[in-house]
Design a protein around this nucleic acid. Structure first.
Ligand SMILES: [Zn+2]
Ligand SMILES: [Zn+2]
Ligand SMILES: [Zn+2]
Ligand SMILES: [Zn+2]
Lengths: 140, 140
DNA sequence: CATGTAAGTGCAACTAATCGCATTTACAAC
DNA sequence: GTTGTAAATGCGATTAGTTGCACTTACATG
């Protein structure tokens, strides 16, 4: 199954319509590297299909984030960063001193998810956190 | 020590200047309830001191967030929410189904902070997370 | 208290993001 | 295939947030 078909299955299963704009926006994000901004997605999409509106991009990315296909994270720069997620979750450690960004496996948050479920009855969706702090090199 | 004096001490200790704008902005946030937006802070500040610029509010809130005095969080509404934090940390559980927001004690994140420090050498600043998911009532 | 200077502010221009509404379109049902 | 309808899109207007730069001000130093 191609990745477009796979995405379409997820969308249809969530009761969303399969539109050319939506497929193009999500495909663009899927094949981009990590962490792109909405304006960059818009620009790429418009190269193939010029009359897509910015609001469509924001709405599509927002609803895909609710489905867990995509993450939507403030990484400390001015803009919100979007990233294709699919099934593999990860997070980031961001150093306030040197600005370095490293990835963190989702397993670090497993025990938190378990505690929230057991003690609060809350089924958490620990999508894609940006954890700020000071990295090993920058500590004195 | 009044809360203004206390804030001033923190600012000075961080090498920041004590300006009337900064004190007014932070005092406004401190005495607001939970979670206010930047435009609301701006409006309140301007009632007392009309010529404060929006960019000053954003810059002040942003730098106070880096000092840990203030949190800056996307709670799922359109706008970023700011909140006075000081020393007591907390987080929020937000239900994607009913929209309910509840508070979460910082102790839930203690073990994560410890693991990040011990295993990655990363001194995390687990300020004020918005954790999305489905609350107990909304689960089937 | 006068002076130097680095940080902070306001302004203006700009980009990012949201929202209401009229029109279009995917797709389910017949 | 035709039709009905709810969802999605585009557009325009508006709000939210950022940035560069000239000017101002807090405050350290003598
Ligand atoms: Zn990522
Ligand atoms: Zn670092
Ligand atoms: Zn809070
Ligand atoms: Zn709920």
């Amino acid at each position: 199954m191609s990745c477009e078909t796979e995405t379409a299955v997820v969308l249809r299963h969530a009761g969303q319509k399969i539109t050319p704009q939506r497929m193009l926006i999500l495909s663009t994000l899927r094949h981009a590297g990590e962490h792109v901004t909405a304006p960059i997605v818009l620009e790429a999409v418009r190269r193939l299909y010029p009359y897509v509106d910015a609001s469509t991009v924001y709405r599509t990315l927002g609803s895909a984030a609710e489905l867990g296909l995509v993450s939507e994270t403030d990484m400390g720069a001015g803009d919100t960063q979007f990233e294709w997620i699919g099934r593999d979750r990860h997070h980031h450690l961001i150093c306030r001193s040197c600005g370095g960004v490293s990835s963190l496996d989702n397993s670090y948050l497993d025990s938190l998810a378990t505690a929230l479920y057991d003690e609060q009855g809350f089924q958490a969706d620990l999508g894609h956190f940006a954890i700020f702090g000071v990295c090993q090199n920058c500590r004195v």
